[in-house]
Design a protein around this nucleic acid. Sequence first.
DNA 1: GCCAACGTTGGC
DNA 2: GCCAACGTTGGC
Length: 153
Amino acid sequence: MAYWLFKTEPDVFSIDDLEAKGAPEVWEGIRNYQARNLLRDEIAVGDQVFIYHSSCKHIGIAGIAEVTRTGFADPFQFNAASDYYDPKSDPDNPRWFAVDVCFVERFDALIPLNVLKGVSALSDMVLLNRSRLSIQPVSEQEWSIINNKLVVR
DNA sequence: GCCAACGTTGGC
DNA sequence: GCCAACGTTGGC
C-alpha cells in the first residue's frame, strides 16, 4: 500500500464536504503533468491519502481518504462548460486523469503546516520542498510519524 | 494583496 | 532545444 497527499482548497472542497458526501468523490481537475503521471500510473485502489487544506485560513492536513477507483480519464476535460475543459485533449488518448477517493477520517484538530515544518524527520517531505505539487507521494515513514504522533483524535 | 517559486507556452 | 514571457500556486 502506498501513501499520498492531495491538496484542496477547503472553500471549494474540504474534508467536511467529503465526509458529508458519504460516497466516493471524483478527484478531478488536476492539470499538472507530474501529478497526472501519479494519477494515471502510480496510485492504486486501497492507497491512503492525507487531505491537505491549502490557500485558506487554517493550512494543514485535515484528515484521511482512501482511493477506491484509479486511472480513468478525467471527465471534465471533455466538458466545454467546465473550468477544467481542455480542447486539446483527445478522447482516444486523454491528457488528464482522475481517481476516486472516499472519506476515512477527519482529524479532531487539523495538523498545521508550521507544525510539519518543525519536525526534523519530515524535512524531506515533498510538501515542504516542492510545495506546488498538488498530488504528491508520502513515504511510509512520513505517514507513520504524522499518523501516529501528530494526529489529534 | 504581495511576491517568490516554478510550470507552461511559443517564437526563434 | 533554448529561453523569455507569461500564468498559476500558495504561504504570508
